[in-house]
């Protein structure tokens, strides 16, 4: 099954440059774990980083301190065999690095209801700019009509959803900005679990979800 909806170039560049917020970085890194096309794009960007490094060598001279730095690296270098950690084979829904952030399988999480049968799990980060959350949308259920003040990226982890004439399945990313008003619906086959990253509050169009939003910090 190949992925149809990918990370945009600007998001990938910011991720590789390490200028992207932590919340959005979780989404990009988890998509990369599932998508070799975007990994190949990330390799292009990192190669570019290497090229910038090479270009910078031409005008740069050695500093006096370099010799000291070099000497202390040699001194402290001891070949240490790094122990490789084995990861458990049980958990397939959440790829790394997402799984480390969540610390469990879907049925072990403390999901919070957010209305309409939809549940969320907020992911703790050091990031104050973006909010990263898991959403569980019951099979066949629609998310209420909403727009965004900022950016929303959604990565499907299990099940599927239909939005703006496209199906999104595991690994697919849907990106919406402030111009988009939509009401995605989960596919009928199973509950849809996705990772949603937003950098501003959602704007629900009808009053009931807006009231819910107040209480649940969506």
């Amino acid at each position: 099954m190949s992925i149809q909806h990918h990370i945009h170039g600007d998001l990938l560049l910011a991720y590789c440059a390490a200028t992207l917020d932590e919340g959005a970085s979780i989404l990009v890194a988890t998509h990369l774990a599932l998508c070799s096309d975007c990994r190949s794009d990330a390799e292009i960007v990192e190669t570019l980083g290497g090229i910038f490094l090479e270009n910078a060598t031409t005008n740069q001279k050695q500093e006096k301190s370099d010799q000291k730095i070099f000497a202390s690296i040699i001194k402290s270098h001891q070949s240490t065999a790094s122990a490789s950690s084995k990861s458990s084979l049980d958990s397939f829904v959440f790829p790394e690095p997402l799984r480390s952030y969540i610390g469990g399988d879907p049925d072990e999480l403390d999901w919070q209801p957010v209305g309409g049968g939809i549940r969320q799990f907020l992911i703790k980060t050091h990031d104050s700019q973006t909010t990263a959350r898991l959403l569980m949308i019951p099979a066949g259920k629609r998310v209420p009509d909403h727009g965004h003040q900022g950016f929303e990226a959604t990565l499907v982890l299990s099940g599927s959803f239909y939005d703006r004439d496209s199906w999104y399945r595991r690994g697919d990313v849907s990106i919406a900005d402030s111009t988009v008003i939509h009401h995605p619906a989960a596919g009928p086959e199973e509950d849809c679990i996705c990772l949603a990253v937003t950098d501003a509050k959602l704007k629900f169009r009808s009053p009931l979800p807006r009231l819910f939003q107040k209480f649940h910090g969506i």
Binding site: L20, A29, E96
Partner: peptide, 17 residues
């Protein structure tokens, strides 16, 4: 201060190309 998470190619869910 914020982390920069990375994928792990040895993870069982990793999709090789």
């Amino acid at each position: 201060r914020e982390n920069r998470p990375e994928f792990n190619p040895n993870d069982p869910t990793f999709q090789p190309s």
